[in-house]
Simulated assay, not measured.
Amino acid sequence: MPAITFASRHEESPTCSHAAGTAPFDYLPKSSLDRLRKINHFLIHAFQNSISVIQENLTGTYLFLLADTNGVLLSMNYSSDLKAVVEDSPIRPGMFFTAQSCGVNAISVTMDSNEPVVLLPEQHESPYFQSWHCYAAPLFMGSQHVGYLDVSTINADMQGELIAIAKLIPAYMHNCYQSQQTAEVCNKPAVEFTERQLTILEMIAGGLTVKAIALKLKIKECTVNHHKKVIFNKLGVQSSTEAVSIASRMSYV
């Protein structure tokens, strides 16, 4: 098995930048990460559930990573033989997988290209990832872009299997994700919206910005934001994406 080396753990503000291939890496503050993981709890659960199903048929060494649309690591899973290595590595939820944070890597490349990519060990800028053969791709739930998936191995002979596995995971995740959301919607009581709130909710679903909604309805942007806050509270969500998803399943949009 090729040697695997990682940097020691070190944390700084996510606003700082470092030269490619050097430590420390950038991490999201814990309070922000906790909120981000709460917002993406359906996605994280779907990821972990899908990996647990797939892992039953795996014999090699694998590292699975789930990042949000900004490249922040939300969740990870790995084969048992990597436990000590990963726990002693800088890779943990909250890490930014942007090129600015840790040099060119599979997730940063697919973020830039919006296409699936295969990155060989020598193509990683950071020496800490130069044992890995990585496949990364944008992750969608239906038509909604929710983040990025990375599947990595240190065994070059398993690269083909790696890509095949990575292509299976989104299908598993999508089924699990939909099941979770349907179950939650079924348990939600009916929500009462005013006519103005429904109008704004429909506009949000149509992709309009706060400024566009304000211009169209001839109201102030702060008023639109107030209505959005009320809508989010009624639906029990924290983002427009979640609001539209839940509202569509409850037939409000």
Rank of each mutant, 00 (worst) to 15 (best):
F97T: 01
M95E: 08
A99I: 07
A99R: 15
S89F: 13
P121D: 00
V109G: 11
G103W: 03
P116L: 08
A99E: 14
P93C: 03
F96E: 02
A84E: 15
E115S: 10
L119A: 07
L120V: 00
L119Q: 01
R92S: 04
E87F: 11
V117R: 03
P127Y: 06
E115K: 13
A106Y: 04
S108I: 05
V85P: 06
V86W: 00
M95H: 02
P116S: 02
E115N: 12
V86R: 04
I91E: 10
M95Y: 06
M111I: 08
S101Q: 09
I91K: 03
P127T: 09
S113E: 10
M111E: 08
P127E: 06
P90H: 07
V118D: 05
R92E: 03
C102M: 15
N114C: 00
I107R: 05
D112P: 07
K83W: 10
E122G: 06
V85H: 14
K83E: 14
L120P: 07
S113A: 12
S89P: 11
I91M: 11
Q100T: 13
V117M: 09
E87I: 05
T110E: 05
A84R: 15
V104T: 03
A106V: 08
A84N: 14
V117C: 07
F97G: 00
M95D: 00
C102N: 15
P121S: 07
H124I: 02
L119G: 00
Q100D: 14
I107T: 13
V118Y: 13
A106W: 02
V109K: 12
L82H: 01
L82D: 10
D81A: 05
S113Y: 08
N114Y: 06
A106Q: 06
S108Y: 04
A99L: 02
D81L: 09
D88R: 14
S108L: 11
I91Y: 01
Q123Y: 08
V118P: 04
V117Y: 01
L120R: 13
D81Q: 13
V109R: 12
E125R: 03
E87L: 14
D81C: 10
K83A: 10
S89Y: 14
A99Q: 15
P116N: 00
S126R: 03
A99H: 11
Q123D: 08
V85S: 15
E122L: 09
V117N: 03
L119D: 04
S101N: 14
C102S: 15
N114F: 12
E115H: 06
F97M: 06
S126F: 07
D81S: 12
Q100A: 14
P93M: 01
E115W: 02
I107H: 11
P121W: 10
P93L: 01
L119I: 11
H124A: 00
A84W: 12
M111N: 05
E122W: 09
E87S: 14
V118G: 00
I107D: 15
S108A: 14
Q100G: 13
V118M: 05
H124N: 05
